[in-house]
Simulated scan of single mutants.
Amino acid sequence: MPYSPNPQHRNTQFSSTKSQWTIPIPAEEASFNHSVDQNWATNNIYWGLHLVELKPENLGISPCSNQLFIAKFVSDQGNWHGYPVATWLSPFDKPDEQTLTVWENRGLISTPKKSKIHRGKRCSL
């Protein structure tokens, strides 16, 4: 699946309104590819993590300067791009419970963190 980074999420001119990636583009692409390989998807949306030694690490920053740990990947006419999400700000920007359960079962997130994300509460992974 073709992947193209969205420049708005890497340009500080948009940082007051758009979340920004803080990891390099190859790491962003690796996060996308890993989510596709693991099928962390719901309704044609993939959810990703930036894993370092099998531990989720910060991958971006929100417009209000909070660290972000989860990415959302969407398709525009077959071309994919993604952005870091503040899961507590929008119900549409948080992974579904099935994806969260997979992450929990694989030891990527704890049960309390899964619960916080699911309820729309802020948490660091």
Results as ranks from 00 to 15, higher is better:
41 A>F: 08
29 E>H: 11
48 G>Q: 03
82 G>M: 04
125 L>Y: 10
32 F>H: 02
54 L>E: 15
95 P>G: 00
96 D>T: 03
38 Q>F: 14
68 L>W: 03
31 S>V: 05
105 N>W: 06
23 I>E: 03
60 G>Q: 01
109 I>S: 05
97 E>N: 13
35 S>M: 08
65 S>G: 04
54 L>D: 15
117 I>F: 03
120 G>R: 09
24 P>F: 11
5 P>E: 12
30 A>T: 09
108 L>D: 04
77 Q>H: 14
58 N>K: 15
8 Q>W: 07
37 D>N: 15
103 W>K: 08
106 R>W: 04
1 M>E: 09
79 N>Q: 12
1 M>D: 07
114 K>D: 07
7 P>G: 04
36 V>L: 06
93 D>W: 00
53 E>D: 15
15 S>C: 07
101 T>H: 10
42 T>S: 14
68 L>R: 03
59 L>A: 04
92 F>C: 05
103 W>V: 06
36 V>S: 03
43 N>M: 08
60 G>T: 02
32 F>V: 05
63 P>W: 03
84 P>T: 04
109 I>C: 04
116 K>W: 10
102 V>S: 11
56 P>C: 12
37 D>T: 13
88 W>A: 02
23 I>C: 01
45 I>Q: 06
106 R>P: 02
75 S>I: 05
72 K>R: 15
110 S>A: 11
125 L>V: 09
30 A>P: 02
81 H>F: 08
114 K>M: 05
92 F>W: 12
6 N>A: 12
32 F>L: 06
67 Q>H: 14
47 W>K: 02
124 S>N: 12
45 I>F: 07
63 P>G: 03
25 I>L: 12
11 N>F: 05
92 F>Y: 14
66 N>L: 10
13 Q>K: 10
118 H>A: 13
16 S>W: 10
123 C>V: 15
117 I>G: 01
63 P>L: 01
90 S>K: 12
122 R>A: 08
33 N>Q: 11
2 P>I: 14
24 P>A: 09
2 P>L: 12
97 E>L: 14
22 T>P: 02
68 L>N: 01
32 F>Y: 13
27 A>V: 13
115 S>N: 13
47 W>T: 00
86 A>E: 05
9 H>G: 05
97 E>I: 14
125 L>K: 01
52 V>H: 06
11 N>K: 09
96 D>E: 09
85 V>P: 00
48 G>M: 00
6 N>C: 09
11 N>D: 15
54 L>Q: 15
116 K>G: 00
108 L>P: 01
32 F>K: 01
85 V>S: 02
16 S>N: 14
62 S>P: 00
9 H>N: 10
72 K>L: 06
19 S>K: 05
115 S>T: 13
48 G>I: 03
37 D>H: 11
38 Q>E: 14
114 K>A: 03
1 M>N: 10
43 N>D: 14
11 N>Y: 07
46 Y>A: 04
122 R>E: 09
110 S>V: 08
36 V>P: 00
77 Q>I: 07
